[in-house]
């Protein structure tokens, strides 16, 4: 009970300030935006966490009237509790959520919407359509297709490709299906597809086994730069660096740097920017701070990073 009262103190102070500046009341009204994302369990999510914190710090200065509440969750159940807490105790006006899993988060986010709040869903869609006001996501189909098309157009005829898949999820399926579709009917062959779980160590093991199993491999689709790091190490161990190219994904800074430096082993990369959380937070903030319409679906395309354009995808300060 005591805590409740304490929480009310700043609100009371804010109310007094509001009463003071009557003319500015509309602008000075404090808005609270909740941001709920999965915790930094792997490289990509680490980058996403960094961009979220970075954006919140920056926007906090630009819009003093917006207060951000950031929470990170290690599993879906914790994320549901976080969102319930935001609604019950922090009185949020808007919610930016990257669902840990679609199914379990659908109902809690629906409750937020039902309470009349503005909802932005990031990257992983909810399992029911029409709940969110704004949907911001990367393009998983394009992510797979761009890599597939690169292989189709640039590898020699009869080239043999091995694939490392991520954690078994719909997202991974979309990417892989698009990749296969892009290679459909071409003269390139996919030898094998195993799960490296977006993890360096797992990818290292899977690639070691590929190298033991197949005497001829011309290209590796590592589908993620964390996996690409493990793959490169396994290839170096086998001394087969000059036999195959590796295409990762998501644009990790070390990999982008090597593409900039024209490393023959890493010709290209495909973007799936962790900074998409920044787009989502910025647009949600704009919803409250401007008249610009912010609704609908905003899909960030997956682009091919080549040595020519790599510089614009290089963020040396990001941890990813």
């Amino acid at each position: 009970m005591e805590r409740r009262n304490l929480l009310k103190l700043p609100l009371a102070a804010a109310a007094l300030t509001l009463a003071g500046g009557v003319a500015l009341a509309q602008e000075a009204e404090k808005k609270v935006i909740g941001v709920s994302i999965p915790s930094a369990t792997h490289g990509f999510m680490g980058g996403l966490n960094w961009h979220a914190q970075d954006t919140i710090a920056r926007l906090g200065k630009v819009y003093p009237n917006i207060e951000f509440v950031l929470s990170t969750a290690g599993d879906a159940a914790k994320q549901v509790s976080d969102i319930e807490d935001m609604l019950a105790t922090r009185n949020i006006d808007g919610l930016v959520v990257l669902p840990f899993e679609s199914e379990p988060l659908t109902d809690p986010v629906k409750q937020v919407k039902a309470a009349g709040k503005f909802v932005t869903v990031v990257d992983r869609g909810l399992s029911e359509e029409g709940i969110e006001d704004l949907y911001v996501a990367g393009d998983n189909t394009a992510f797979g297709r761009v890599a597939g098309e690169y292989f189709r157009d640039n590898l020699p005829a009869g080239a043999k490709i091995v694939v490392l898949r991520g954690i078994p999820t719909t997202l991974d399926n979309e990417r892989v299906e698009a990749f296969q579709a892009a290679l459909q009917g071409s003269d390139k062959e996919i030898l094998d597809m195993q799960h490296g779980n977006w993890n360096r160590d797992d990818a290292f093991k899977v690639m070691q086994d590929y190298l033991a199993k197949y005497p001829e491999i011309d290209a590796v689709w590592a589908a993620d730069d964390d996996m690409a790091v493990g793959v490169l190490e396994a290839i170096a161990q086998a001394g087969r660096e000059d036999q195959m190219v590796v295409v990762g994904g998501a644009g990790m800074k070390d990999i982008v740097k090597r593409i900039m430096d024209k490393d023959p082993q890493l010709p290209v990369n495909v973007t799936y920017p962790p900074a998409l959380i920044s787009s989502a937070i910025e647009m949600t903030a704009l919803r409250f701070m401007s008249n610009a319409p912010m609704a609908g679906r905003y899909i960030i395309g997956s682009q091919l990073i080549t040595p020519e354009n790599a510089e614009q995808f290089y963020y040396p300060d990001s941890p990813f």
Partner: peptide, 11 residues
């Protein structure tokens, strides 16, 4: 370790 790595990777 997640905190030391700032959510990313220590290399």
């Amino acid at each position: 370790v997640t905190w030391l790595a700032d959510g990313g990777t220590l290399s």
